[in-house]
Amino acid sequence: NRRVIAMPSVRKWAREKGVDIRLVQGTGKNGRVLKEDIDAFLAG
């Protein structure tokens, strides 16, 4: 159960899209999950 680094707005975006943010690979600094990462995860 790893800790995910993400801005609150990104966490909210993931929740709205029904995405478990822990499954998303972050591409930002220090592995931070970005809004673009959520979109890419949804795109496959």
Rank of each mutant, 00 (worst) to 15 (best):
F41A: 06
I5A: 06
L42V: 12
G31N: 07
V33D: 01
E36S: 14
V4H: 05
D20G: 02
V33M: 03
K29H: 12
G44K: 14
I21G: 00
D37L: 03
G18L: 06
R22V: 06
A40L: 12
N30R: 10
V10P: 02
V33S: 01
V33R: 02
K12F: 06
R11S: 04
K12M: 08
K35V: 07
L42T: 06
K12C: 15
G26C: 01
N30E: 09
V19L: 05
K29E: 11
K29C: 12
K29D: 10
A40Y: 09
K35C: 15
S9G: 11
P8G: 08
K35G: 03
M7W: 15
N30K: 09
V33Y: 01
E16W: 09
V24Y: 00
I5G: 04
G18R: 07
R32H: 07
I5R: 08
V10Q: 02
A6F: 03
Q25M: 13
G28W: 00
V10R: 01
V33K: 03
R15M: 13
P8E: 11
A43Y: 10
T27R: 05
K17R: 12
G31T: 03
L34Q: 08
R32G: 06
A40H: 12
S9F: 07
L42Y: 07
T27W: 02
A6K: 03
D39R: 07
A43G: 09
G28F: 00
E36N: 09
Q25S: 12
M7F: 15
I38C: 00
K35L: 10
N30W: 11
D20H: 04
A6S: 06
A43Q: 13
P8I: 10
V10L: 05
V10W: 03
K12T: 06
K35M: 11
N1M: 10
D20I: 04
R22E: 08
R2S: 11
A40D: 12
V10H: 02
S9I: 08
E16V: 11
D37H: 01
W13V: 15
K12L: 08
A43P: 05
V33N: 00
E16D: 11
E16T: 11
M7R: 15
S9D: 14
G31F: 05
A6E: 03
Q25L: 13
L34E: 08
I5H: 08
S9E: 12
E36K: 14
G28H: 02
Q25N: 12
L23A: 09
A6Y: 04
K29W: 09
V24T: 02
V4E: 05
F41Y: 14
R15W: 14
M7Y: 15
A14E: 02
D37M: 02
G31Q: 06
F41E: 03
A40F: 10
A14W: 04
K17N: 15
G26S: 04
R15T: 13
R2K: 14
R22Q: 09
R32L: 09
K35N: 04
R15P: 05
D20S: 05
G26E: 01
P8K: 13
W13R: 15
Q25G: 07
L23G: 07
S9V: 09
R3S: 11
D20P: 06
R22W: 09
G28I: 01
R11G: 03
D37C: 00
D20E: 05
A43L: 13
N1R: 14
V4L: 08
S9H: 12
G44Q: 14
A14N: 01
V19G: 01
G18Q: 07
L23R: 11
K29G: 08
L23C: 15
L34Y: 06
I5S: 07
L42M: 09
R2W: 08
A6D: 03
V33G: 00
R2M: 10
V19Y: 02
V10S: 03
V4P: 07
